[in-house]
Amino acid sequence: MDEPLQNLANDGAQFTPSTKEERFPRESRAVAIGIAGWLIPGLGHALQRMWGRAVVVFLAVGLLIFAGASMKGNVFTHQGNDAFDTLGYIADLGTGSFYLFARAIETGGADVSHADGDYGTRLLATAGVLNLLAALHAYEAARGHKA
C-alpha cells in the first residue's frame, strides 16, 4: 500500500495524502474547524494560520458584544415569549462562548425602553450572525474552496 503512494509521490504529478490527512479526513477537519470558529470567534481561521482574519473576527465580535451589553441591549435566553425572541436567541447563540461573556457582563439587565438599549440588542444579534458567517468562511476555507 505504501509503495505505490511513494512512487506517485516521486513522480511529483499526483497528490499524495499525508499521514495526518489519512487519520483525519478533510471534511471532518473542516467541520471541526467550523465548530471551533463558532465556539471561539476567530479560532477557525487561526487553526488555518489565517492570523489577520482570526484577529479581526475576534476583535469585531468582541467589540460588538461589549458595546451591545454596555448599551443595555437584550441578551435573549431560551425562555422567549414569541418567535422574535427565539430568533434573537438563535442570533445571540451565534457568538458561541461570547454569549456567556455577554450574559456575565450585563449584570444590570437589559433596558430597551431607550434607543441605546434597542441599538445594543441589534449589535448583539449582529455579533452572532457575523460570527456564524466567519465560522462558515473558515469551514469553506478548510474544505479547500477559495477564501
Binding site: 448599551m71 443595555k72 457582563i105 450585563e106 449584570t107
Partner: peptide, 10 residues
C-alpha cells in the same frame, strides 16, 4: 462580576 459602565451613543 461588577456591572460595566453604560455606553451612551447617539
Amino acid at each position: 462580576m461588577t456591572a460595566i459602565p453604560p455606553l451612551e451613543l447617539t
